[in-house]
Structures are given as C-alpha cells and as structure tokens.
Simulated assay, not measured.
Amino acid sequence: MSRAVEDLLRRLAPRVLGTLVRRHGQFDACEDAVQEALLAASVQWPAEGVPREPAGWLVTVAGRRLTDQWRSEAARRRRELAVSTEPAPEEDVAKHVDDTLRLLFLCCHPELSPPSQVALTLRAVGGLTTAEIANAFLVPESTMAQRISRSKQKIKGHGFPEGPERLPAVLHVLYLIFNEGYNATSGPDLQRVELTEEAIRLTREVHALMPADGEVAGLLALMLLTDARRATRTSPDGALVPLAEQDRTRWDRARIAEGVALVSRTLAESAPGPYQLQAAIAAIHDEAPSTEATDWRQILVLYTILDRMSPNPMVTLNRAIATAMVQGPRAGLDLLASLDKDRRVAGHYRLDAVRAHLLDLAGEHEQAREHYRKAAKRTFSLPEREYLLRKTSG
C-alpha cells in the first residue's frame, strides 16, 4: 500500500467512525466495522484506484459489515429493522463533515478520567493501535486494552454530545497529548514525537472545522511554536539541552511563521484566552535571537494575565522565572514561596528545579545544588534526571 493511500485512510478513519457512531451508536461494533472497511480499502484501492468518494465508499462498506453482523446476530431481536440497508454515504458524509469533531467530543465524555479520555482519543480519532498507546504511556498492552474497553463501555449509549460546552475538554485532552509527547513524564526519552505530531494533526482537524474559534487557533499556534524547537532540545546522545543553550538557527522557521501568523490573527479578532496567551509567550521566545534579547517584560505581563485568568501552579512557576529575569532572582524566589503549601505542586520536581535555577542566579550555589538533587530524585524522566544531576556538580 502506498504512503498516499495510507495517509488518506488515516485521515478518513475518524470521520467514518464518527458517521457510523452518530447513526447507529454501538461504539465497539462500529469501530470493528470501520477496521474491516479500512482493511478492504488497503487491498482494493492500490489495485483498482481510489474511488471518487473515498469517505462514502468506506461508510458504505463499513455500514454493510455492520448490517450483516447485526442481521446474523440479532435476527431474534429484529435489530436489522432499525438499520438502513441502503445508506446514502456520499450525501451523509458531506452533510455531516463535523463527525470527526463529534467523535472527539464523545471521547472526551465527562464520565471518563483525563487519562481515559486521552487513550480513547488516540485510539478512536488518532488511529493509534492499543500497543502504540500502551508503549507511549509505558504500561502493558493488556492494561491499556482494559482501560480503552472500560471507556467504551462507559460512554456506550450516550450518543453524540450537543453544544460547545465540551470543547474545553477536547482542547485540554489535545494539550495533554502534546505535552506528554513534548516532555515525557517518564522513560529514557525526553520526547515522544509520535504523540506531538498526532496532537498537532488532531488540533489541525479541529481548527479546520472551527476556524473562527480563538482558543482552537491559539492551541494550534502554541503547539507549532513549541514544537518548532524540538530538534535542538536534546544533544546527539539524547541529553537535555535547556532553552538558553539551544541553537536557535536550527529552530523550524516554517512552524514559527505559521504559529505567529495564527496567534497574531486570533488575538486581533477575539478576546484572548489561556491558549492564546501561552501561544503569544511562545512566539516571543521563538522570535528572540537569544535569551538575553528576549522581551521578558512582555512575557511577565502575559504570565501575570494568564495567572489571573487561569490560576495554575505551573503558570506561577513560569511567572516566577519571568519575574526573576525582570526584577531579579530574589523576587522570583519570593513568588515561588507562595507555592510551598499548594498541594497540586508541593513535592513536584519542577518546583525544586525552578527554585534551584533561581538560587543559582542569586549566587547561592550550595542551596541550588541541594534543590537540584531533590528535583533529580523526584522526576521519572531519565534525561531530566541526568541533566539535574549534572547541575549538582556545576
């Protein structure tokens, strides 16, 4: 099968699944039918050519598989009377181009925990196999299979959600997927490129369906501007390279240009939200020729607004760094002290790591080494641990 056909099938799969789930419910059965249709397409299309309406072809084949299955299994329940035996796929798919988004909303059902939302989204919308998802989150395949299966059972019969109220959950799940890929919480690698790329691809899909939504555009811009630095975040041997030491000439200028254009347009057209503000901060970093030349005052203003709009200890950590760059390390350390009793971040390695960095800037090197050691003990990421341990001997 050619790469072009493979990419086409991957793009169409969530849309076709969304159409079937909307029409018939039965998430598991629809997913199995779509997999059979994709398999049939992977055999027929390379030999016979891609049909004029590939999405309609897949819906037709999957719908017939579903109907055949229900006819054979549920004759006694008369299930087939509720199923259309002659679907109009081209018309149906064209009329409901937002089924991918609806499927995303379904995977982010509030009955599911955030980890389950992420796993189900990657499986149903991202097209990753259970083994790939399990590998990404460092759990056995059987464990991930059970998690996904339980998630499907929880949302069985709920149908598609209505209204935009679940969009924040969808964006949050995409944000979590991207962050796990960009800065893996555990394991031997700092980054998991397959997750960052999948998060960007899915966010592009949402943006294409909702181009006027400022926060969708903001999240896509944030991902592009952040991922633009990917190639310089590790050395050839996999060691972590901090932002201040990265070779900015190797940053992806195409992604930076796209991200800057997105965030500039959305900030001009809509009231700023948290993702737009984070994207604006990322744009300032990406456009600066060096750490010293970065507009830290503007970054501090944006983090202050963000901390008021969406209070979060990780935002406060970043605001402390910006404060230190503008007002001096002691002011940054004073702000960090406000987090010491915050249960959400107390004991988190990043609190110790940021405190160590600011103590270093303040010239208190022995105290800094103590906190670098604490941070190294608390992280599960091998590259981060090795970096923090190197700082203890600096």
Rank of each mutant, 00 (worst) to 15 (best):
G126K: 00
D307N: 08
V34L: 04
A40Q: 10
A88F: 15
G187E: 08
T85A: 13
W45L: 01
R308G: 13
I133Y: 05
L128P: 06
D247I: 02
S42V: 06
T130Q: 07
G347Q: 01
Q327Y: 15
H348P: 01
D28S: 08
R23F: 04
Q298Y: 12
L103H: 04
P274V: 07
R52Q: 12
R64C: 09
L388F: 03
R64T: 12
Q278F: 10
P274N: 07
S270E: 14
E91N: 10
A288T: 11
P51V: 02
L195E: 01
V345N: 00
Y175L: 10
P188Y: 04
F105T: 10
L388D: 00
R123I: 10
E366K: 11
R255N: 12
K95Q: 15
G157W: 05
A280H: 14
A37Q: 03
L122S: 03
T85W: 15
R192K: 14
R79F: 13
F27R: 14
E111C: 12
P272Y: 08
E90S: 15
Q278R: 13
R71N: 12
F160Q: 11
R390Q: 08
P313S: 01
M223C: 09
G181R: 03
S393L: 14
G238D: 00
A221W: 07
T60K: 15
L128S: 05
D213A: 01
K341D: 13
P87K: 00
L190H: 03
V5N: 10
P274D: 06
R350N: 09
G181A: 05
M144P: 01
V50L: 06
E132V: 11
R65N: 09
E287M: 12
D286T: 14
L104G: 04
R253M: 10
R23M: 12
A199K: 04
Q367E: 14
E132L: 09
P383Y: 01
L351S: 02
R350A: 09
V354E: 00
P313M: 02
G181E: 04
R71T: 13
P14H: 00
D32Y: 05
H365N: 08
Q246V: 03
L209W: 02
R319P: 07
L58M: 07
L38T: 02
E386L: 15
D340F: 09
H109M: 11
G238N: 02
V326W: 08
L81N: 12
L219M: 06
